[in-house]
């Protein structure tokens, strides 16, 4: 997994609430057996018309935001299905950080498995960053995961919370499965006891 430590980039504003995983990556693109190459289809139905032409007023089609690496989003970003294709598409497009007031649970955890940092901030701070993002390409947002800070283009600093284990894995690009396998003895012990206690499982 790609490490995440610091990021300095253009932030694209997407104030719509409840941006769901069907919007992020419509189902027609789920028929892949690979993880890669989904960035071109990110937000497909909002970004392109049926002929494949760009819809000019969609934020990521605007010249200022084509190279955005941060999304500042409305409440409850990533709600809906468990499809990891959503963070795959986001990461493949080049977005490494999403800032909102809340994220759907499964999406939030999927981000950390794919080198994306989802940041939860209170509404007023998210709104301030949304305004900052609306300034366009000259307004770069800085993110520092180690320090747990987001800095706006005006130098306002906001701190955020992140689970210490998730932070550790993201900063070091660690593979969860490898880490868990180091605890195989605990799993073996649990499994033996559980099958004695609950033989029907």
């Amino acid at each position: 997994m790609q490490k995440f430590d610091t990021l300095s980039g253009i932030a694209a504003p997407m104030p719509l609430v409840n941006i769901d995983t069907d919007m992020i990556i419509p189902k027609v693109f789920l028929k892949t057996i690979k993880r890669s190459g989904l960035g071109v289809n990110l937000f497909d139905e909002m970004r392109f018309d049926r002929q494949g032409n760009e819809i000019a007023d969609f934020v990521l089609n605007q010249p200022a935001y084509r190279d955005a690496s941060v999304l500042v989003a409305g409440d409850n970003f990533g709600c809906g299905s468990s499809r990891e294709h959503a963070p795959w598409a986001i990461a493949d497009f080049g977005i490494r950080c999403v800032i909102s007031t809340s994220f759907a649970d499964i999406f939030y955890s999927n981000c950390f498995k794919n080198g994306i940092l989802p940041i939860v901030l209170p509404e007023d701070q998210r709104d301030a960053l949304m305004k900052d993002a609306e300034k366009g390409a000259n307004a770069r947002i800085e993110v520092d995961l180690d320090a747990q800070t987001v800095t706006s283009s005006d130098g306002d600093v906001y701190t955020f919370d992140v689970d210490s284990f998730k932070k550790h894995c993201l900063m070091n690009g660690l593979d969860d499965i490898g880490l868990t396998m180091e605890k195989a003895a605990s799993i073996d012990t649990f499994e033996a006891q559980a099958s004695a206690d609950r033989p029907w499982v």
């Binding site: 990891e84 963070p87 999927n110 498995k113 499965i177 868990t180 799993i187």
Partner: peptide, 21 residues
Amino acid sequence: AHGIGTSEVEHVLATQTLIQK
């Protein structure tokens, strides 16, 4: 009972556990 992403599917296949809080 709850949904998981594909990375977690792989994690459960390999370890029969899920990292959770």
